[in-house]
Amino acid sequence: MKPVFLIKGECMVSVTNLYLCRMYLISKLKHQATPDELAELQEFMAALKQMPQDLGRLLYLKYFTMGEYRPRYLGHPRSHHRKLPLGIRRNWCVKCGTHPEMAEILGITRQEVSFLEKRAVKALAETLLEMRLANAQTEAMEV
């Protein structure tokens, strides 16, 4: 997946594979998440709901429905000696759905899945940027 970076004014949005995987981890491990991570997850889910329905469903299918997570140091020969670092991102690793798997489920070609995913990521980034700009404007008005 090609990452998307959008900047407008003082707001910046970066939507990458790691960002989407982190949102999946936070949604599954809410009891270990910090308040900032939970706020970021709420912003992400609100943006996902505002996107066009077919594009939002594609991202949800790949990262949330088909996603799997496991402890990062599982199977490491010295894992019982190693102290796990703090935070969700460092303790867990994620595997999301692949394009061939998604193409089989959706009944379309891999190329179409790739094209739709690029559109979905760009739409998500634009929606997040609009939300952050609106939020920054409201905070400026309150001050």
Rank of each mutant, 00 (worst) to 15 (best):
M141P: 01
L38I: 12
Y69F: 14
M66T: 04
G67R: 03
Y19V: 11
Y24I: 05
E112F: 00
E139W: 02
L6V: 06
L48N: 05
V15I: 12
Y19L: 10
C11P: 01
A33H: 10
R78C: 13
F64K: 04
L6C: 06
K28M: 13
V143H: 13
E112Y: 01
I88L: 08
A33E: 10
T65N: 09
Y60T: 08
A125K: 05
K62H: 06
T127W: 01
C21M: 13
V94R: 06
G67K: 04
P3D: 07
R57N: 09
R89I: 00
G107E: 02
I7T: 09
L25G: 09
V113Y: 02
V121Y: 03
M23P: 13
E130Y: 00
H99A: 13
Q53Y: 06
E112R: 09
A46E: 13
A47T: 05
N135P: 00
F44H: 14
E142T: 07
S27Q: 04
H76K: 07
T138S: 09
A39M: 15
E43P: 09
G97N: 05
D36Q: 13
N17T: 06
L6M: 08
L116R: 15
L29A: 03
V143W: 07
W92I: 02
E130P: 01
G56I: 04
N135H: 04
T127G: 06
G75H: 05
H76P: 08
P3F: 00
A140D: 08
H81A: 12
M66L: 15
L55S: 07
I105Q: 07
Q32N: 09
K2N: 13
E10R: 09
